[in-house]
Amino acid sequence: MKFRWHRRHWSEIIVKLLMYCSVGLVFASLAVILWTIVSKGLPALTWEMVSQTPKGGFYLGKEGGILNAILGSLYLAGGATLIAFVFSLPLALFLETYLGQSRWANWVRLSLDVLWGIPSIVYGAFGFILMLSLGMRASLLGGILTLALLELPIMVRAMDEVIRRMPYDLEQAALALGSTKWEVASRVVLRQMLSGIVTAILLAFGRGIGDAASVLFTAGYTDSIPTSLMRPAASLPLAVFFQLGTPFPQVQQRAYAAALILTVIVLVVSLGSRFLAAQVGKFSVK
């Protein structure tokens, strides 16, 4: 039988072309973004940038670096990740074992999803009024607490994903041997989800270190390296934002360099989490 071209064959080809274009567009947008950041940031990046704090006249283009922002960001995101982890590990671990698919569990999942969708600027505003009512000023602690709120749902969700993919038999077998649910959760599920924990921590850390809107109100900004929880702390995203906003080209150059540093940190965290998760995941039962 002779093949005859029909309209549906043409539309198949056209749609396929459109799909290739769309996929290409996704690749291209990442390439363009990375290229913009690297090509602008690399010439501006010097050793002085990462090893010194801002000196006098820094924001007019004089010497200094952004060590304050790099360290501030690491403190903020590190502290927030730690606090979020303390709350989210038990929450994720027991959500499945104790609550399972019950009505309440679905409520909890829904509220986690909703929390996950609340814009970071709203968290920032909330953190700000919370600090006002407690009589606190913009400080490292305030920033850490606000970021922790932001990271909590991200972390729980990431962990929950892994737990749900766990073989059902494993849990049932442990229960059949007479273990309590607590024992199942702490001895079986916890070991199974090690890779999920690693992914969740790094994912949340990456989110936290890049978020500007929530630390804008709560952590403030300072030129010195934070020495106390009650003092303000600088952060990389805000360093980029403030320096880009100045009219001086030399200062804008530094914003590009700061953006490059931030991008590199986020990329390392993001790609590192895949690698680590694969390494740790070797030891779990598939």
Binding site: V23, V26, F27, S29, L30, V32, I33, T36, I37, K40, L203, G206, R207, I209, G210, D211, A212, A213, P237, V240, F241, L244, A255, Y256, A259, L262, T263, V266, L267, V269, S270, L271, R274
Partner: peptide, 27 residues
Amino acid sequence: TRVLLKPVLDVLAALPSVIYGVWGVLA
């Protein structure tokens, strides 16, 4: 293709919004 595209999407999702902002201003 799926294996290749996954990390690309992950990175796009992971980039901080201020980086998108810098890209926006520059490009």
